[in-house]
């Protein structure tokens, strides 16, 4: 999106950001609103410096590890199951209702179970990320396989293609844009999984740091966590957009 902004528009975005931050800073430092509630940009920076000197890197590493493991597993199993469900009608008739139900269930409610089963270490958070990210991937990939262009299907058949060839040369490539769509949703849900998991019960991580700061009324630190998570989400979305652009033309 950003690349399509004109220079004027970019300037506008930059300007409004500066104005927003200034107003925030002024509201807080002039005590118009109590900084205890809203912190301020300068307080957040100071607080971040202190935190980075006192173990924030470890929290970031733990959160990242949980997120990446959870996503990797969700992509691996989500794509494979999505392919299988899209390809085998009978399988999807049997399995799809279960998956739809699991997807409809409030997955946050499963967290206490994960913590019982897997403890308060990173494993329960990996499970939380997985549960968030897995379903959107399964559903979109399944849809991708099912919407193979009829013309391409006939084409492959006319050259005598067998099922394996149709699957590898048509189903897999045409599901790629759908995998990307799934990833966009999955990344958001995965992040939610990490944070909620850590807020609930953890030994380290950004969410854990935020939860501790909050219970000791350190608003600035909570905001540091918030800024980090927002930044991380933003970077991930931008990376996905770049990958999207590469695969854009794969859509039929």
């Amino acid at each position: 999106m950003n690349s399509s902004l004109s220079r004027y528009e970019k300037l506008l975005v930059f300007g409004t950001t500066i104005i927003f931050l200034t107003i925030w800073e002024l509201l807080s430092s002039l005590k118009i609103v109590d900084p205890f509630f809203i912190s301020s940009p300068s307080r957040i920076i100071t607080s971040a410096q202190w935190l980075f000197a006192h173990g924030l890197w470890n929290d970031i590493r733990v959160s990242l590890e949980e997120f990446l493991w959870g996503m990797a597993l969700a992509i691996l199993f989500g794509v494979i199951l999505g392919w299988a469900l899209g390809w085998y009608r009978t399988l999807s008739v049997v399995v799809e209702p279960f998956i739809t139900m699991m997807n409809a269930a409030p997955r946050v409610a499963l967290l206490p179970l994960f913590i019982l089963w897997l403890g308060i270490g990173i494993e329960s958070k990996i499970a939380a990320v997985f549960m968030g990210a897995f379903f959107p991937i399964v559903f979109t990939v399944m849809k991708g396989v099912r919407t193979i262009d009829k013309g391409l299907f006939d084409l492959a058949r006319s050259f005598g293609a067998n099922d394996v060839q149709v699957f590898t040369t048509l189903a897999i490539p045409s599901s790629v844009p759908y995998i990307m769509t799934g990833l966009h949703i999955a990344v958001g849900r995965g992040l939610v999984g990490v944070v909620i998991g850590e807020l609930l019960a953890a030994q380290a991580g950004i969410g854990f740091m935020m939860s501790r700061a909050s219970s000791s009324f350190q608003t600035d630190k909570v905001f540091v966590g918030l800024v980090l998570l927002t930044g991380f989400g933003y970077v991930l979305t931008e990376v996905l957009k770049m990958i999207d652009k590469y695969f854009e033309s794969w859509r039929i």
Partner: peptide, 11 residues
Amino acid sequence: MVFQSAALLPW
């Protein structure tokens, strides 16, 4: 067979 729509694989 030559198809009515070009039926090319976009990738």
